[in-house]
């Protein structure tokens, strides 16, 4: 009977999503292991020379990972300055969190698979561009509630500035391989609002004291993302 239901979902695609939404009424259904929903998030790093910190994928019904014009949360500050996603992954609004647990080199792709027993409305994605002071990229609050099995959503996100650390590009302030400097620092010496990133300058372009060079420049989009519901 259960198998028959799943088959119907595949065949009728978006139409049967309505029925899917009601699954939480039946404890018998949701307790079955194969009633889990599963999503694959594939990310390609499109920058020239900005490795990405371990990818962080979150499921949630409330909350935002960031909002343009608002101050970054401490959890986002930590991720955007150091690449450390542990605080964000354990944030109270998060219903499920996964990471690939490894740096994603430029020019490469990686996939994070996340599953959940109960449907979540939103999926978010965050990663740091590690050869910067506090640049990050990702997706905030993608509505996945209408996504049927085998359907995909595609995005090309740009780079954001957490606004929690001045973009000095100076030695000792950048955690990535271009510097090997400090990651997280609790002081906030920038605008203290999240904005789109205006790019790096680099020593090649005349910023005295910058440890970055022409290789580390980037333009948007910095990543290609495909979200596919596989169960």
């Amino acid at each position: 009977m259960l198998k028959y239901t799943k088959l119907a979902i595949v065949v009728f695609g978006a139409i049967s999503l309505v029925a899917c939404d009601d699954n939480n009424e039946s404890s018998a259904l949701t307790s079955e292991a194969d009633s889990a929903l599963e999503y694959q998030v594939t990310v390609s790093n499109l920058t020239n020379a900005q490795p990405f910190s371990p990818l962080t994928v979150l499921l949630h019904d409330t909350g935002d990972v960031w909002n343009i014009g608002d101050s970054a949360s401490d959890a986002l500050e930590s991720l955007a300055e150091s690449g450390d996603n542990s605080t964000l992954m354990s944030s109270s609004f998060v219903l499920g969190a996964e990471t690939n647990g490894a740096v994603l080199p430029y020019g490469q792709s990686a996939t994070v698979t996340i599953s959940t027993e109960t449907e979540s409305n939103y999926l978010s994605l965050v990663t740091m561009l590690v050869n910067t002071n506090d640049a990050f990229s990702g997706l905030n609050k993608v509505d996945i509630s209408q996504l049927a099995v085998n359907q995909s959503l595609q995005y090309s996100p740009g780079a954001y500035d957490a606004g929690t650390e001045g973009n000095s590009e100076a030695a000792g302030t950048i955690p990535g391989p271009a510097d090997g400097g400090e990651g997280f620092n609790a002081s906030r010496d920038d605008l203290n609002i999240v904005t789109m990133h205006s790019g790096i300058i680099s020593s090649d372009d005349g910023l005295v004291g910058s440890v970055l060079n022409f290789e580390h420049k980037f333009d948007n989009p910095v990543m290609a993302v495909t979200i596919t519901r596989i169960k």
């Binding site: 920058t47 020239n48 020379a49 430029y106 020019g107 022409f214 420049k217 980037f218 333009d219």
Partner: peptide
């Protein structure tokens, strides 16, 4: 640096 196709910097 990056020998795969990527966004031009």
């Amino acid at each position: 640096s990056n020998t795969n196709i990527h966004i031009h910097r």
